[in-house]
Amino acid sequence: MKINSIKSTLAQRIKSRLDKLGKSERRASLEAGLSDSFLRNIRQNKSSSPRIDTLEKIAEVLETNPAWLMTGAGEEELSLPAANILPEPAPRYFPPAEPAAVSAIYAERQPPENNRDLPILKPGARRMHRQKSPRIVTLPGLQPGYDGFHESDGPSPPISPSPYPSYDLFQGEEAATEHIPNALIGKKFSLNERRLPVYGQAVGGIDGEFPINGSTLYSVLCPPQLSEISGAYAVSISGDSMYPRYEDGEIAFVDPTRRVKKGDYVIAQIATDETEIPLAYVKKFICHNAGGLVLEQFNPAKELHFPHERVVSVHYIALAGTAPV
């Protein structure tokens, strides 16, 4: 009774977060990298107690505190640090100026040696600073925002400090700032149209095994992860011997080139007799050495041992789920 109560409470917390975020059980399961029916199985009390790392993935997708999701204790909502927002500068008042009093000193444009677009200032004129952000400067005889000086005003007054960052347009008499692009155009994206053969059969054996005789059930679109992998293929899961990792009818996509290690999920082909077709097992990899191959099964929980000389191949399962035909 205690276990069922815990599961029910966990299911209620998951449903509460799904309702607040407007997500479905299937969408949240896939975003967490799980099978599309994982959260549904928790709600229906079909799944065994999820692992802590699995609950942490679910908490991240549900945007909630992992401790609250697991136990109901603590804060439900994640606390976010306050944004560091700089206050905007106070508005400044600029009195109007007579339009007739506005004029500017422009230098005669001559082609410098290194850049033909740089202006040469007249003797006595000040170098100006261009602003990255808009800036309004009021000088005697000028309209607000005019970037120049009146000849009759004498030496130019100092410019008031600006709250915005600035950079010098000139780094020397004949140097100019270089325009740096803020993005690069990547290579053209090509749509992947490769298809993979799907092997298997409708009903598996006692341990979910099935023969692979080279005939395909159908083909599916290749996932992007395997689009450039030579020899990649897919198998249809039969039975629930690996539930909840894999469900009956799921498609497992296989990378035959990747080296497997302990804890990986694999498809192993085992020869039963020299004249018979090898049987394929979708299991969790434990070890493979001269003593033989050891695989782990979930339902019923046990280890499967095969002699080394009967092992035809052990291939890595890259991902699994439903796939468009």
Score class of each variant (00 low, 15 high):
T138D: 15
A11F: 12
Q44T: 10
D153V: 09
I267N: 12
G214S: 03
P111D: 10
E25A: 10
S29M: 08
S133C: 12
A32G: 15
P140R: 07
D36W: 11
I277E: 03
A73F: 14
P211C: 14
A125G: 13
V311Q: 08
S24W: 13
N182P: 10
L86I: 11
K57G: 08
T272P: 03
S190C: 09
A90T: 04
G208R: 00
E113K: 04
G239L: 01
A100H: 14
P96Y: 09
I237S: 10
E173Q: 12
D117I: 07
P181H: 05
L55S: 12
A175M: 11
L295P: 00
I85F: 14
Q12M: 07
R127T: 00
Y246V: 00
E228K: 08
G291F: 08
L217T: 07
L86P: 06
E108G: 14
R109I: 07
Y146G: 09
L304M: 05
R127P: 00
W68L: 02
A101D: 15
I212C: 14
L226R: 04
P112L: 04
G74T: 04
V235K: 02
P89R: 07
S219L: 02
G208N: 00
N213S: 13
Y167N: 02
S79V: 02
K2W: 15
A104M: 12
P111E: 08
S162T: 15
L21R: 06
P89A: 03
T257A: 12
P211R: 05
S103H: 13
A183Y: 12
S103G: 10
T257M: 08
T71C: 06
E60W: 05
A175Y: 14
R130P: 05
S160Y: 10
P134A: 06
L169E: 09
E76F: 07
L184A: 14
L21V: 04
N65T: 13
D36E: 11
M128K: 11
K23M: 11
E274D: 13
S133Q: 15
L39M: 05
H288R: 04
N213Q: 08
S29V: 02
G214T: 03
I212S: 09
R126P: 15
L293K: 00
P66C: 11
S241I: 01
D153C: 14
S103N: 15
P95S: 12
R109W: 14
P324Q: 09
I237R: 02
S35Q: 14
